[in-house]
């Protein structure tokens, strides 16, 4: 993985933090800046989890209204701005999807393709060494376990949904994921 230029990454993040804080003061220009800097990332999240373009657009709309109203509660010392925004998008998308009753088609493979770490990454907004560390540790665990963990994160799937998608018994899926998470924890603790 190529390492981003830390100064430009820090500048991009600082610009987003500032725009988010000003949005909390009801600054409409700052809100537009937040939208420009983040809408592609957040739409990617909504689209992936909702698996429905219209649904993803509605959720994204709702996400930015939430951001507008909630920006004053953002605490830069607690969370990176993109993680804060992305968490809202992921949560709202999962809410939306769980309200839909339709079955999901082949989500695991799709999530896997999306989560390929060799793909271009948004290194200007998240430039943590943590990101590199997490990838190193994910790479170190067994592929089947890694794949299930990625699907859970990127698809917003529960154990039951993962098992259904992979057509394996629930106990088997739990065992894969738990072993993967234990290995991940061991690796992340050792690397800290």
């Amino acid at each position: 993985m190529s390492s981003p230029d830390p100064s430009s990454a820090n500048a991009a993040r600082a610009a987003l933090v500032e725009a988010l804080i000003r949005t909390g003061d009801a600054d409409r220009d700052a809100f537009r800046t937040v939208y420009q800097l983040t809408s592609a990332k957040l739409f990617g999240i909504c689209l992936r989890i909702c698996e429905d373009r219209q649904g993803a657009e509605d959720v994204l709309h709702d996400v930015y209204l939430t951001i507008w109203h909630r920006a004053a509660t953002y605490r830069p010392e607690r969370a990176s701005p993109i993680a804060w925004l992305a968490t809202i998008a992921r949560n709202r998308s999962i809410d939306w999807r769980r309200r839909q009753t339709r079955a999901r088609a082949a989500p695991v493979e799709a999530a896997d393709a999306l989560a390929d770490p060799a793909r271009a990454q948004d290194e200007t907004l998240i430039a943590d060494e943590l990101h590199g560390r997490l990838h190193g540790c994910l790479e170190a665990i067994e592929p089947r376990q890694r794949s299930a963990i990625r699907s859970a994160f990127f698809g917003g799937l529960t154990y039951a949904e993962l098992a259904l998608a992979q057509a394996v018994p629930l106990g088997t899926m739990k065992s894969w994921v738990r072993r993967g998470l234990l290995a991940l924890r061991g690796c992340l603790d050792a690397a800290a």
């Binding site: 957040l42 739409f43 992936r48 993680a83 999306l114 998240i126 990101h131 997490l134 990127f154």
Partner: peptide, 15 residues
């Protein structure tokens, strides 16, 4: 926090 770092991998799609 750990999983939050994975948001960097999420592909962008123009809204």
């Amino acid at each position: 926090d750990w999983f939050g770092a994975l948001f960097a991998d999420w592909p962008e799609v123009a809204a």
